[in-house]
């Protein structure tokens, strides 16, 4: 374990807690893409199936359970409890265009053609594009509440910090995982536009307005 990964995991945990809390406190999921949340729930449930087969550490196990529980709870709030506030009209990204390539790529490029490994690979590929419906929704509505942009900043930072973790591990432990690294770079690249807007606008107290 290294500082980059710890801060990355905590940033990730912060992001999903910010989102769950925002929806719960405001009793509304306005401006939140339910489709992205479904994709994230799928990412964690397919990636963390090894909870039952491999014990890495207490930290690893506890965090996996939290990520699965919080992502499912968030989907429940969006699609069940506060369904009336879900913004169907702006959450229109076709997620089948993300799921199909992730499945195909996982079957073609993987470390091992076993059930759990294919699911893990699918999860890695899917996670790299899972935020697209949310970013698409923000671009369609032309703006995002500041709490939503804090959520996106924390979520985007987590994988950016993981890239530093992978550099650290390559130099210090001489291990690397190209699938995770390439997907992580793609994932972080998707946030660059948002990071720019967040730093130049939100941190100066302005609302996040995307050029329509």
């Amino acid at each position: 374990m290294n500082i980059f990964r710890i801060i990355g995991d905590l940033s990730h945990l912060l992001a999903i807690i910010i989102l769950l809390r925002k929806i719960w406190k405001t009793r509304s999921c306005a401006g939140i893409s339910g489709k992205s949340q479904i994709l994230f729930a799928l990412v964690y449930t397919t990636r963390y199936l090894d909870l039952v087969t491999t014990y890495v550490s207490l930290y690893n196990t506890v965090m996996k359970i939290i990520f699965i529980a919080v992502s499912i709870a968030t989907c429940y709030l969006i699609y069940m409890k506060f369904k009336a506030t879900y913004d169907h009209n702006h959450d229109t990204f076709r997620i089948e265009f993300l799921l199909a390539p992730a499945v195909i790529l996982a079957l073609l490029i993987n470390h091992d053609f076993t059930f759990l490994e294919i699911l893990w690979t699918f999860s890695i590929y899917l996670e790299s594009v899972a935020i697209l419906p949310q970013l698409f929704m923000v671009s369609k509505t032309g703006e995002a509440e500041s709490i939503t942009s804090h959520y996106l900043f924390a979520l985007g930072s987590y994988r950016a910090l993981y890239i530093l973790n992978w550099i650290y591990r390559y130099h210090n432990e001489e291990i690397y995982d190209l699938i995770a690294i390439v997907a992580g770079i793609v994932q972080t690249a998707l946030y660059c536009d948002f990071f720019y807007l967040y730093i130049t606008k939100v941190l100066r107290g302005k609302k996040l307005q995307l050029p329509a």
Binding site: D50, T54, W120, Y170, E174, I175, Y176, D177
Partner: peptide
């Protein structure tokens, strides 16, 4: 070098 055999990251 060693590609990781188990996925020890989240």
């Amino acid at each position: 070098e060693g590609i990781k055999d188990i996925h020890d990251e989240l």
